[in-house]
Design a protein around this nucleic acid. Sequence first.
DNA 1: CTACGTTATACACGATTAAATATAACGCAG
DNA 2: CTGCGTTATATTTAATCGTGTATAACGTAG
Lengths: 128, 128
Amino acid sequence: MPGPRHRRTAQRARASALQPQLRISFKKSIAMGPGKADLLDAIDATGSISAAARKLGMSYRRAWLLVDTMNECFKAAVVETLTGGAQGGGARVTDFGHDIVRRYREMSRKAAASVAREMSEFATLMVR
Amino acid sequence: MPGPRHRRTAQRARASALQPQLRISFKKSIAMGPGKADLLDAIDATGSISAAARKLGMSYRRAWLLVDTMNECFKAAVVETLTGGAQGGGARVTDFGHDIVRRYREMSRKAAASVAREMSEFATLMVR
DNA sequence: CTACGTTATACACGATTAAATATAACGCAG
DNA sequence: CTGCGTTATATTTAATCGTGTATAACGTAG
């Protein structure tokens, strides 16, 4: 007797796992998403791209590319950097960047709230 | 002296480029997103995974993996398949699958509508 | 029985992506 | 001047992803 064809890995569905993700695409790249917002927070907290990358467990190169993508997508710089100096340099989220993150997070919150009921119903249709 | 600022028709920022994408993640995989919804539509229209893949310009393997991911993520099958027979077999979106797509599309629409104003404001902050 | 088109799977190959490593420029501390 | 940590970039290496190809099982038509 053959077993079920599709085995399902036991997995509890955490509420956060079912949160809708808001991503703002621009041409082929993603201008803003949850990962980039977190990176900007980490740059705020640490004062440098490299420290933010370490904090988030990603490579410096990857963090730098994410910053570069953001700076390319928006009208103005989201992150400003300095080289040299006492700490070797650093990075800083601009006022414009803070505004971008604030707007993004507000849109995410609002969009998620608008479908909160539907999402929780949807969640009941997924493997628990 | 810059030349005439021509309207960049080729890369004009279409509204869809800035539309938020709703993706419903589950564990590490994406249970439902715009691509998977389109695939289910194509399976509806063609009656098979392979024809749907051809219609969407993707490999059969990729389409099959997307279907498999969906079937794994949800409580019940989203797509049912048959092998053999007059047409060699085929695939069919289940009633459950239709319900999933309907719910997903409704959530997408509602979420996008809820932040439509904020999105258009946000768009003005991006490179034109 | 044979042919056909599809599902389901496996494998090889290339493309894309990410990480790891290396290096130069920078500017201040010492 | 030298050392340090950072930015920015290039190069190499590894991992992931996607396609293409191949094959077996399947069930109906002919």
